[in-house]
Deep mutational scan, measured.
Amino acid sequence: MAAAAAAGAGPEMVRGQVFDVGPRYTNLSYIGEGAYGMVCSAYDNVNKVRVAIKKISPFEHQTYCQRTLREIKILLRFRHENIIGINDIIRAPTIEQMKDVYIVQDLMETDLYKLLKTQHLSNDHICYFLYQILRGLKYIHSANVLHRDLKPSNLLLNTTCDLKICDFGLARVADPDHDHTGFLTEYVATRWYRAPEIMLNSKGYTKSIDIWSVGCILAEMLSNRPIFPGKHYLDQLNHILGILGSPSQEDLNCIINLKARNYLLSLPHKNKVPWNRLFPNADSKALDLLDKMLTFNPHKRIEVEQALAHPYLEQYYDPSDEPIAEAPFKFDMELDDLPKEKLKELIFEETARFQPGYRS
């Protein structure tokens, strides 16, 4: 834990890192770190609560700039109880001085990944967590956004079992017609939660990839272990087919990539493993919904509104309290091709509203 900075004593240090967030945020305490930044909790002297502050230093890398800009653009436009918001952003007053960006968010005690390492969940908890994931996802999908990296560590939890989806750095506007060349190379989302079509096709992607990830998360809540822990690309596919069985001819016809289709045709026939054999203690309604989410063919996979209306979630289902976005989200430009200098300018502009004396 960093010592509390005395008023006016300059930035606090946390594990050798400068955290320049005073005077409003003090009493910093280390939480963890990701690929390009550290997260601390801090005391907000204005709202009198502890908050989470993520320090991001992305400006050396085009990919990190892209992810940072995506996350900020999306989260500043989203407003939903099951999606983490941005409360404040701290950065230098000029673009030349801006080396880091500090993002202030609600402090959540833990995440689903940490929880599943230590606790076996009751059916009631599984049901409530799944409902909140789908409630947040309904809003995301209504904005025409794909999260693309749903996994237990991106689901934040607090002691009252509130759940918030975080990390929109890989999110995209849904565009089933656009052929994202190089899709697989830039697709760094965790393999275990990846839909089979991501490994088999490169053309376009749809909201059904997020539903697949939610199915993987439900299976993990039922058993405290990942359902498809593939060691590499082909191993991942083999794990999936080992449980779902061989795809039907109709399902194979959806695979545009001939090499991928021929690979699947070359494999020995596998039978589907019954879900109640894998999860003998699970609620039968939970397994019915799991089956509809972990469907090989993305066109037959359940959609988020149908999933919310499934009998497993009937005690929570309330369409009048499951809000959607006001308007579909649009990125003005494809960020993939922009140089990091341009992305830095866009991050600077996007964060201006939090600067003292800002006038829109």
Rank of each mutant, 00 (worst) to 15 (best):
C65T: 06
A352P: 02
I133V: 03
D167T: 05
R172P: 06
Y187I: 00
A5P: 02
Y131F: 14
N262V: 03
V173S: 10
L278Q: 15
A352C: 06
L69K: 04
I83W: 00
I72Y: 00
R353V: 13
I56Y: 06
L252K: 08
I324N: 11
T110S: 15
A195C: 06
N27E: 05
L346S: 11
I217Q: 10
K272F: 04
Y233S: 14
E303V: 13
D235A: 09
L308R: 00
Y312F: 15
K340N: 14
K203Y: 10
P328G: 06
D235C: 04
I140N: 13
G10F: 12
F331Y: 15
R172C: 06
L241Q: 00
L156Y: 08
S248A: 11
S208D: 05
F59N: 02
L155D: 03
A286Y: 00
R50W: 09
N253G: 10
N297V: 10
F329S: 13
N27M: 08
M98G: 06
Q236T: 08
I95N: 15
E197R: 13
Y139V: 13
R353T: 06
H178C: 11
A195D: 15
P298R: 09
E197C: 08
Y30L: 09
Q132A: 09
L28A: 08
S213M: 04
D44W: 01
N271E: 11
V101Q: 07
I56G: 12
P274K: 06
D179P: 08
R277F: 06
D44A: 09
P280Q: 12
L237G: 11
D336C: 02
S320K: 07
S142G: 04
L287T: 07
A42Q: 01
T94A: 05
L258M: 14
K55C: 11
C127P: 07
V51R: 01
K55N: 15
R148K: 12
L278P: 02
P93S: 12
M293L: 15
L287K: 05
L258A: 09
R277T: 05
Q66H: 15
T94F: 11
R359M: 14
S266Q: 01
T110K: 11
Y187T: 01
E314M: 00
K114F: 12
C161D: 03
K114Y: 13
K344T: 09
N158T: 12
I95H: 05
D332A: 10
I227H: 07
H125Q: 15
M293I: 15
I217A: 08
Y187S: 11
G85A: 08
L308C: 02
P356G: 08
M13Y: 14
A352R: 13
G10M: 12
T68A: 15
N276G: 09
P280M: 14
M38Y: 10
A35C: 02
L338M: 15
Q66P: 08
D288T: 01
I126T: 05
L313Q: 14
L313E: 06
P58K: 01
S29H: 02
L155I: 02
I211S: 13
E12W: 06
Q132D: 08
Y128D: 05
I256K: 11
L234M: 15
R77M: 04
S29Y: 02
N201Q: 07
L287P: 08
H125Y: 12
S41T: 10
S122M: 09
G85V: 14
L338T: 09
L69Y: 04
L155S: 02
D124P: 06
G204C: 10
H120I: 01
Y64W: 11
P176Y: 07
A7C: 11
L338S: 10
I227Y: 03
E341Y: 01
F19H: 14
R67S: 15
A52R: 09
S142I: 03
I227A: 01
Q306I: 02
R359N: 02
E186F: 03
P226C: 11
W275L: 15
A52E: 08
L69R: 01
L69E: 05
L137S: 11
S153R: 14
F348W: 08
M108L: 13
Q62I: 11
K340W: 02
Y233K: 11
A352E: 13
R353A: 03
N47S: 13
N297Q: 11
Y131L: 06
E345T: 01
S360T: 11
G34C: 06
F168C: 05
R261T: 11
N253K: 13
I89Q: 02
G16S: 05
F329L: 15
D167H: 05
A5F: 00
P274Q: 15
C65G: 02
I72G: 02
L69T: 03
D88S: 05
T118C: 08
I103A: 07
Y233A: 07
I209D: 09
Y131H: 04
H147K: 09
P356N: 05
F279M: 09
L252N: 04
Y43G: 02
L346I: 10
G22N: 08
L313C: 01
Q249H: 14
K300T: 08
L107H: 06
K270H: 03
L150F: 09
I103S: 08
T110I: 10
M293K: 15
R359Y: 05
H178P: 11
Q17E: 07
M98T: 03
D175W: 06
M221S: 05
N158P: 06
D88F: 00
R77S: 01
N224L: 12
A4S: 13
I83F: 15
M199H: 13
N281H: 08
P311D: 04
D177V: 14
T159P: 11
R70C: 14
N257Y: 15
I86S: 12
R91F: 03
I126Q: 11
V101T: 12
M13H: 13
L267K: 02
I198E: 06
L287G: 05
D332P: 00
Q66W: 08
R191P: 12
L265N: 06
L290R: 11
E81M: 09
A189C: 13
R15T: 09
T351C: 04
D106A: 04
D100K: 02
N262A: 08
K73V: 13
A286D: 10
L28Y: 05
A307T: 10
A4Y: 00
M333P: 08
L155N: 00
Q315G: 02
D20I: 11
Y205G: 07
K203G: 12
N238K: 13
T190N: 10
K330S: 05
C65D: 04
R70Y: 02
V273G: 00
N238L: 13
A5N: 00
K54Y: 01
V273W: 01
N82G: 08
K99D: 07
H120W: 09
E12P: 00
C127K: 12
E345V: 14
V101A: 12
A3M: 11
H232K: 00
T63M: 09
M13N: 10
F348I: 14
R172W: 03
C40N: 00
I302R: 10
A325N: 01
P311V: 05
H180N: 15
D179L: 11
V273C: 04
Y102R: 06
V214E: 15
Y263M: 11
R50I: 00
T63V: 06
V145M: 12
E96Q: 01
L69N: 03
H310R: 04
Y128N: 14
H299A: 05
F348E: 13
D291W: 05
L146G: 06
T118P: 14
I53Q: 03
A171F: 04
E250K: 10
A189T: 14
E109I: 01
E345H: 03
L134D: 09
I165S: 04
M221T: 04
R91N: 00
T295H: 03
D251Q: 06
L116N: 07
Q62W: 05
C127T: 04
N253H: 08
S284F: 08
A92N: 00
E349F: 00
C254E: 07
N224Q: 12
I227C: 09
L75P: 03
G215I: 07
R15I: 12
N47A: 13
P93T: 15
Y139K: 12
G37W: 04
T181E: 11
S284A: 10
R50E: 12
L157V: 07
A174W: 03
S320P: 05
I72M: 13
H232Q: 12
D106L: 00
A307E: 01
N27K: 14
N271L: 07
D162R: 02
A219E: 14
Q119V: 11
V145Q: 03
